[in-house]
Structures are given as structure tokens and as C-alpha cells.
Amino acid sequence: MNCYLGVDIGSISTKGVVIDENKRIIASCYLWTEGNPTEAVKKVVKNLKEQIPETYTLKGIGTTGSARKLIGLLLDANVVKNEITAHAIGTMTIHPDVRTILEIGGQDSKIILIENGIITDYAMNTLCAAGTGAFLSSQAKRLGIPIEEFGDIALSSNNPTKIAARCTVFAESDLVHKLQVGYPKKDIIAGLCKSIVLNYLNNVGKGKKIVGPIVFQGGVSKNIGVVKYFKEVLKEDVIVDENGHLMGAYGVAILSHKTATDKVYSWDIANIKFETKGMECNECSNNCELLRIYKDNVLIETTGSKCGKE
């Protein structure tokens, strides 16, 4: 039987999914990137391989996420796709009638609008990390509360504190101020969750018509506090899928299935020697930062050059 691998290498976490011919997820893996995408991918692939019976042959690999190009080279992927398309494809396969996808990840957040199975509009946060997972987790550290408990604590509050949500830095100083004047922690946590929602809708969802069915994805969708406030503010039901965090990887696995050829891919990437060397080219005043990528000591790609030099 054939199977297809999709890998989504995000800033915070790396996700891997293996699907069969019928687009069913037969194995999945989720772990922290920890600033080392190549190592994370090696771990993910090893983990997935152990979950899958020997009878499957790997016929396609797709990569997405912010390290998609690098990992695409490492895995020799047949599809390298941006995360917006990948998320939309994945979500539409599971929820064919979806109209709006809200996605909040570690470093970026996006909104995708869909009509009749086609993406009609999308937006990504472009300037600021306010209202992303990174902001929530840094505030959790400040409050000394594990991020996993955030949602439950937020739900226990009936009176969320208002927190200035425009910008991460302002939100943080407002939060400190509210703590120092004595607001209860649970109200502040609830306020934080609400501020994420308001910030997202004001910055990313700005001017977009959000219609149901709405699917909410990304790491932050695991926070039931944020989900609650999305429902409250949008006055619509918000679907959170159990596999929501895997949708990017799932989408790119489907794309890889579509364009697969007869080529058979190997699971053994743990032994591939994959090196990158950074250098500054001083041949003109552009001073490009070149990144040379070596696979088993052979130069396979140079990125970052403006003139096409290798």
C-alpha cells in the first residue's frame, strides 16, 4: 500500500502526518522545533516510521511551514507549499463546507476565507507578534502558570480584566499594571485570552467578513479560554478540530499525493549529513548573506543571493 508524508515545520513546533491512499491519517507526530528544524524533522520522521506497518511504501513527501524550503531539500520533497495553501487544503478535506479558517500559531496568525471550495481572501499578521502563541507563552511564564492550564483558569473567571491589546509591549505593561493594582490572577488570564481574540480580529481579520462555519486552528486553538471568547465575540459557533494543529502537514501530504510519481522515497534520513554554512559575500555592496546548503558534503543549494551567485 502507498502512503504519503507531510511535514509542517513551524517556528515553535514541528508536525508530521502520514496518510494513505484514501486521505486517512494513519500516523502523526508533534514535537518542539527548539530552534533546530533539521534535527526536529529527523526525529519526527523516525517517530512516524515506527508507527507505520512495514507494508506501506512511501510515495510522496510534502513540506510546509517557515522552514519548508530547507526541509524540502533535506527530504527531497515533491511538494513545497506555503502554509496558507496547505492549511486551506487540509481543512477543506475534513470540513468541506468551511467558510472561514482562523489560525493562530507560535509566531504568526492568519485568516483564510473560503467560498465554494476556493480560497477567496486571506491575510497574515505582517508587523507584530501581538496575539500569537509566543505572546501567550511569555505571559504565562511571567505569571508563573503553565500554559496548558491557561484555558481552564480563564474559564473560571466571569469578569475578564480589560487589557490593552494593540501591541505586545503595551499589553505587557498594561498586564503588569493590572497585577500591581491587585486584580485577581484568573480575571487577568481571562482578559489575556480575550485580548488575543480582539487583537486578532482587529489586526488580521480587519475588514474581512467572517461567516460560519468557522474552524479555529493552530497551537492557540488548544486554549479553551481563547475559543470561548472567539465564540462570544463572533456570535457564531467555532469548530476546534482534535487534529487542528496537524492541518498544515495534512494539507501538504494531500498535495504530495496529488502530484506523486512512481518514485519511492526512503524513510532513512537520520544518517544523511546535512550541513548549512553561512557567509557574507563581499563582491558588491549588496553584501548578501549567503547560506550554502550541503547534503552529504555536496553543495545542493545557495540561498540569499541577489545576483544568482552560488
Binding site: K81, N82, E83, I84, T85, N116, G117, I118, I119, Y122
Partner: peptide, 20 residues
């Protein structure tokens, strides 16, 4: 990077629309 990602998604979106 942000520009490239959004541009790629724009191109994908146009292609999907054209096919249908």
C-alpha cells in the same frame, strides 16, 4: 520571507480559481 509566502499563496489562490 513574509512577502514571498503571501505571494505564493496569492498565486495558488488564482490558480485554484482558474481551474474551477
Amino acid at each position: 520571507t513574509g512577502i514571498k509566502t503571501r505571494l505564493e499563496a496569492f498565486y495558488d489562490m488564482l490558480e485554484m480559481r482558474k481551474k474551477l
